[in-house]
Design a protein around this nucleic acid. Structure first.
Lengths: 223, 223
DNA sequence: CGGTGCATTGATCAGAATCAATGATCGTGG
DNA sequence: CCACGATCATTGATTCTGATCAATGCACCG
């Protein structure tokens, strides 16, 4: 399977102050955890394991049994689907605080790879679902997340289906910028952790087209 | 599955049909209502109104206040997004039993129009959300629906971004066929309630391309 | 009938893909 | 420290798929 880093701090009784594993978490208030009361959070922590992946490693694989769900705490991830002949569509990118695995079907609907170094909280799906039954507000939050993703997916369909190469790149950049604002990191310049090939496979173009579009845009900025 | 299934096989019972508005409903066991116990269903019915739309009428409008959610009981609907210059992307089609309005944000994320005559159950959103809080299993069901739609959206992105015109049409037809099987109507020949223009705007092509692709396919079938 | 809306077929064009080469950046080991 | 190779980005030349433009066919309907 995957080369998961085993090293992690033993998860102490969370109610013992600063030893709480979530205490230092920078994304607590944007992640799904934010809706949990302290004791509920402890229950979640009890089924959580921290896992790490390095550059290019596969986190989940389309079609595999969906045994785990994740919360991305550090780094960035690309989600994608592959065709038999290698054509790839990147359906989205995840950043710190994002939830991975919202599609609660039996199998994963897409694959996910680490862009650079990545850290996630990993939850066993079975146990997580039990928690959903216990905490309806967590379920509600998840429904909200799904709802947002659905809206994003609609936008992406419009982009893929009806926008020109130029418009695609513009939309891609401004979406990234908006997300940066949301997570209160710098919105300008926009940081692009992913390669041109990743961008191309996200907006359905080639690396050449993406590169050329950037160049033209820069020329315009200069004049 | 709930206890409802046992008593609900026969679809039409004229004598007891007059008593309960859902008794004659052909889609009860595939719609979200299927998870509700009889008394819960009555509560839902209490906030439900039946509404009708005819050919081409707008059911919801992108950007408008999302005051209502729907269950499609008869007919077919196209969901779409428009760009300022008229370019259109049809993000999906809904058929009998499908839920409309899963994106529970303040505004509708897309527009919806009737293809032919359409009947829906309409729920006021506020009241529906109260019911979600009362009946977690309904919420769970909705999360399942959202999950499925998300997976479908991923597939559509792959289609729009990386498939050839031919592959798009093939995927479109087989998806329709699969859905027909699911709803136990005829899967062959596939019934196409929507126009060529609708198909084109769904798979991101032109009517000409769709038409030509059909023609070529038919020629191949003959030989 | 003639008119209207949709579907099909044909001819040409353009935007982005593909093919090909060069440039830039970075890590590694001599 | 520099040379080398690997990887990724940029730029250029050519091709090709599907869009656009245009005309005709077909069914339905007052």
């Amino acid at each position: 399977m995957s080369a998961i880093d085993m090293q992690q701090k033993p998860q102490k009784r969370p109610d013992e102050g600063d030893l709480h594993p979530c205490a230092a978490c920078g994304i607590r208030d944007m992640a799904i955890c934010s809706v949990l009361a302290p004791d509920e959070l402890n229950q979640l922590v009890a089924i959580t394991r921290d896992v790490n992946f390095s550059q290019g490693q596969t986190i989940i694989d389309e079609g595999e049994q969906a045994d785990f769900l994740f919360n991305l705490t550090q780094g960035a991830i690309r989600l994608y689907k592959l065709m038999a002949d290698g054509r790839r569509q990147i359906t989205g990118f995840l950043f710190e605080g994002d939830f991975l695995g919202i599609a609660l079907n039996e199998q994963y609907a897409y694959s996910a790879e680490a862009i650079g170094e990545v850290t996630l909280c990993r939850f066993p799906r079975q146990k997580f679902e039990v928690m959903l039954d216990e905490f309806p507000h967590l379920e509600k939050r998840l429904l909200g997340v799904a709802s947002n993703e659905l809206a994003q997916a609609q936008d992406q369909m419009l982009l893929l289906g009806r926008k020109t190469a130029r418009e695609k790149v513009v939309s891609f950049l401004s979406a990234l910028s908006r997300r940066a604002v949301d997570r209160e990191s710098d919105a300008s310049p926009v940081y692009l952790p992913m390669s041109r090939a990743d961008i191309a496979d996200n907006v359905a173009a080639t690396t050449e087209t993406v590169s050329r579009t950037f160049t033209v845009a820069l020329e315009r900025v200069r004049s």
